[in-house]
Amino acid sequence: MAQTLGYLKESPSQTAGPYVHIGTNPNWVEITGVWDKDLGLVLVGPDTKGERIVVKGRVFDGAGAPLRDALIEIWQADAAGLHNSPQEKRGAADPHFAGWGRQPTDAVTGEYKFETIKPGRVPYIDGRPMAPHITVWIVARGINIGLHTRLYFDDEEAANAECPVLARIENKARVKTLLAVRSEENGLPAYTFDIRLQGEGETVFFDI
């Protein structure tokens, strides 16, 4: 028999279940007094650099019903395209922007909403610039392993057209499932990013 390599195996995923918010957003489900503030609700402060935007949408199941028990996390670069992470080796990100956010979907409407900034461009593996994007991660009851996707901006046509990740989507009709649609809300650019788990218009999800 050969020598063993000594690797461990990743712990398997299990669904977050219907009560994920007890652990992630206890104040939101009226478990107060354990800690003051649920994490990830606020991304921007007065000193954050970059263009303020709103990102919002809903997550639909295969029957077209919005998920009202999901949890959405986002992770993104700052306005200069740098991540606020020790793993970011290209420079120091804006100290006033953590780049991570987390919101439950509304228990009635199913809508999620983040106030954030428009991210800068980040290089792909080969150094070519990717189009501005936000990493989106979804967990909920009935989702056995968290789903990774990306939000791109529909008003970044030139950048989107040369994004090496979008170029990898063979079925071009599916590219638009990753494009958030620009409108306006309270004087801010607002991008609507609806996520379809299944069926017509199913969002492109990634194995990362």
Binding site: A63, I143, D207
Partner: peptide, 12 residues
């Protein structure tokens, strides 16, 4: 059943 993507994940 209704919350599972049917397309293969795109290997990124």
């Amino acid at each position: 059943v209704l919350r599972s993507p049917q397309h293969a994940l795109l290997s990124l």
